[in-house]
Simulated assay, not measured.
Amino acid sequence: MKNRRKLLITTIVFLAASLFVVFKLKSNKQEMQDNIAYSQRKVDKIPVIVETATDGVLSENVVATGTLEPSESLTLVSETQGKIVKIYKQKGDRVSQGDAIVKVDDEVISANVLTAEANYMQYQKDVERLTRLANENAVTKRDLEQATIGMKKAKADLITAKKALSNTSIKSPINGFINNSSLTVGQFLAGGSPVCEIVNNSVLNLNVKISEAEVYKIKEGQIVGVRLSVFPEKKFSGRITAIAEKADASMKFNVEITLLNNSKTHLRSGLYAEVDFPVKNQSKVIIPKASIVGSMESPVVFIAQNGKAIKRTLIIGQSNDKQVEVLSGLSANEQVIVSGQLNLKDGDDINIVK
Results as ranks from 00 to 15, higher is better:
Gly92Lys: 02
Arg132Cys: 03
Ala118Val: 08
Gly186Ala: 10
Cys196Ala: 14
Ile36Ala: 03
Thr115His: 04
Pro232Leu: 05
Asp105Arg: 01
Leu314Ala: 03
Leu204Thr: 04
Ala290Trp: 00
Val285Met: 11
Tyr88His: 01
Ile174Lys: 07
Met121Asp: 12
Thr148Lys: 14
Gln323Thr: 14
Thr313His: 09
Gly176Asp: 08
Glu79Arg: 15
Ala147Leu: 12
Ser331Lys: 12
Lys83Met: 10
Ile303Ser: 00
Asn179Val: 04
Lys2Gln: 11
Val279Phe: 08
Ile292Trp: 06
Lys171Met: 11
Asn351Gly: 00
Ser71Glu: 10
Ser295His: 05
Thr52Gly: 00
Asn3Val: 14
Val353Met: 10
Ser269Trp: 05
Leu19Pro: 00
Ile170Thr: 05
Val57Thr: 15
Leu165Ser: 00
Glu214Leu: 09
Asn201Asp: 14
Asp276Ser: 14
Gly150Asn: 14
Ser298Met: 10
Lys252Arg: 11
Asn3Arg: 13
Leu165Met: 03
Ala16Cys: 13
Lys45Asp: 04
Leu68Gly: 05
Gly176Leu: 13
Lys311Gln: 10
Gln282Leu: 11
Tyr123Phe: 13
Ala309Arg: 06
Ile287His: 04
Lys29Thr: 07
Pro173Val: 08
Lys322Phe: 04
Gln187Leu: 08
Leu204Glu: 02
Ile198Glu: 05
Glu107Leu: 14
Ile101Cys: 06
Phe20Glu: 01
Ile223Ala: 13
Asn343Val: 07
Glu72Leu: 12
Val279Asn: 09
Tyr216Asn: 14
Lys311Cys: 05
Lys45Leu: 11
Asn167Val: 01
Lys217Glu: 12
Glu145Val: 05
Lys155Met: 10
Ile149Gln: 08
Asn3Ile: 15
Ile350Cys: 02
Glu72Tyr: 13
Ile101Ser: 03
Ile87Lys: 05
Val338His: 02
Ile101Phe: 07
Leu158Ser: 03
Leu74His: 09
Ala16Tyr: 05
Ser202Pro: 01
Ile12Arg: 11
Asp99Cys: 02
Lys153Asp: 08
Asn207Tyr: 13
Thr65Lys: 10
Asn343His: 12
Val22Tyr: 10
Val22Arg: 01
Arg94Ile: 11
